Amino acid sequence: MKLLNVTSPPPVTSITPQFLKTIQDHFFVGQTGLLSFGGSIVAWGGLFNPLNSGVNVVINDTTLSDLGVNAFTADLYLGSVPPGRKITSSLTTATNLSLPLAKPKAKLKFNPAVRGVPQGGTFAFIRRVETDTTQVIDVSGRIILPPGGTFFALLKTQVFTQSRIGFAWWEERIK
Rank of each mutant, 00 (worst) to 15 (best):
A102M: 12
L64G: 00
G54V: 11
G45F: 08
F110R: 03
T62L: 10
P82T: 10
T95K: 04
S140E: 02
Q31F: 08
P118L: 06
I165F: 02
T133P: 04
T7G: 04
F152D: 06
S140V: 06
P118N: 08
H26D: 11
F37A: 04
W169E: 12
R173A: 15
N49M: 11
V81A: 13
K107Y: 12
A74C: 04
G79N: 05
P146S: 09
G79K: 11
T63C: 03
F160H: 10
G33R: 06
Q18R: 09
T32M: 01
H26K: 15
S53F: 14
T16M: 03
L64R: 00
G120H: 05
P100T: 13
R115G: 12
L34G: 02
T62W: 02
S53D: 14
V159A: 14
T32Y: 03
G120S: 01
F123Y: 13
G38T: 11
L64M: 06
S65E: 10
L91T: 13
L91H: 05
T62H: 00
P146V: 03
D66A: 10
S65T: 15
F152G: 07
D25H: 15
V42E: 02
L154W: 00
G116A: 07
Y77R: 04
A43M: 08
G38M: 13
R127A: 15
P112R: 01
T134A: 09
N56Y: 11
T161L: 09
S65G: 07
S8M: 06
G30K: 09
D66S: 07
I87G: 00
L64Q: 00
D66I: 05
F27P: 05
K175I: 10
F160I: 13
I144N: 11
F19N: 06
V139M: 04
T7H: 09
L78W: 02
G116T: 14
N96H: 12
D61Y: 03
V117L: 05
P50Y: 13
V129N: 00
T63Y: 01
G148Y: 11
S14Q: 11
G166W: 12
T157Q: 14
W44L: 09
P147F: 12
V6C: 06
L99E: 08
R128C: 00
P147A: 12
I144M: 06
P83T: 08
P10N: 02
Q18P: 00
N56W: 10
L67H: 07
V129D: 00
S8I: 01
V57L: 13
H26N: 15
R85I: 13
P146E: 07
I137E: 05
V42H: 01
I41E: 01
K21S: 13
T150M: 10
I23F: 10
R128G: 01
L47M: 11
R128K: 08
I165N: 02
V58D: 08
F160C: 07
I143E: 02
G141H: 02
L3D: 04
